[in-house]
């Protein structure tokens, strides 16, 4: 029974963290059609923002505004220099952001060195929950991510910006014609996407390895989650995370991690082939 509880909590953790990481990628890919291969590197920027705050001895919560500032400014710059020239060339966004990812890794290496960094757990220790000991910080993370998703969901459903983005996606020319500044909106969308990546970086920093290559971890699985969940809905995003994360957890538990990894790849291929618009599609 205990082990079932642990696996259940682990699944929840996986869905929550993957969902958080993929969110920005989904926004950028789903709304702008940009395959941002540097998405993981923005997660890295978030984690290193937390490192700066820790090294300066400042309260760790300051890492959140710092990461948003760093990712926001840098995202703005990247959109202006690179992305906006490539909206009509989707494969080229993939190539250019792959180059960008290398540059970002090297910049971090130049600033912080090649070595591993460690962020202290803000909420250390374990708590006794449902009969098992579970890391306290993860429990906190569940709450934070749940609130975050609820706010986003509400905002996107109700705010004017949400409606505008929807209008822009459904008809670019019409949106421009009715006075929506599509250039600005596209830029804000990109910035929003990379800022959520940065936020994910801050939140995950105490749990993961931190080094210039860390972004690669998040990139490829994120794309597969996107495809399985389908673009365009938060529910799809969470279900995609659940399917990919759940497959990994279940197969890894029954067999081993390598089998889990192979299953994730196989499921992704099957979805890409048979249901490329995600699990909700009717195709």
């Amino acid at each position: 029974m205990e082990i079932v509880t642990v696996y259940g909590l682990n699944l929840l953790y996986t869905v929550a963290t993957l969902g958080l990481i993929v969110l920005g990628l989904a926004v950028v890919f789903g709304l702008l059609g940009v395959m941002n291969m540097a998405h993981g590197e923005f997660v890295m920027l978030g984690a290193y923002s937390a490192l700066i705050v820790q090294n300066q001895g400042l309260p760790i919560l300051l890492a959140i505004p710092l990461a948003l500032l760093v990712c926001g400014l840098f995202g703005w710059l990247v959109e202006w220099l690179m992305i906006r020239h490539l909206y009509s060339r989707p494969f080229d966004t993939l190539l250019a952001t792959w180059g960008l990812a290398i540059l970002m890794r090297k910049a971090i290496e130049g600033l912080f060195g090649r070595g591993y960094q460690s962020i202290d757990q803000t909420v250390p220790g374990t708590v006794h929950l449902l009969g098992v000991d579970y890391p306290a910080y993860r429990i906190v993370l569940f709450g934070v991510i749940a609130v975050l998703f609820a706010v986003l969901f509400g905002w996107y459903q109700r705010s004017n910006t949400g409606a505008r983005i929807k209008a822009m996606v459904s008809n670019l020319e019409l949106a421009a014609a009715v006075g929506i500044d599509t250039v600005l909106l596209a830029r804000m969308t990109f910035v929003f996407g990379v800022c959520t990546a940065g936020l994910a970086g801050v939140l995950l920093a105490p749990l993961v390895r931190i080094e210039p290559f860390m972004g690669l971890d998040y990139l490829l699985s994120s794309f597969f989650i996107l495809v399985v969940g389908g673009l365009g809905s938060l529910e799809g995003l969470l279900i995609g995370s659940g399917i990919i994360g759940g497959t990994d957890i279940v197969v890894s538990a029954i067999s081993d991690k390598t089998a889990g990894y192979l299953s994730v790849l196989t499921i992704s291929i099957l979805f890409l082939w048979l249901k490329p618009d995600g699990i909700f599609s009717r195709r």
Binding site: V6, A253, D256, K257, T258
Partner: peptide, 20 residues
């Protein structure tokens, strides 16, 4: 005894097994 692919970044299932 367990072997992980190079891409593994989540060790939850391994930890559950170790504990178990």
């Amino acid at each position: 005894e367990e072997y992980l692919p190079f891409t593994a970044d989540n060790f939850d299932s391994n930890l559950a097994k170790i504990k178990d």
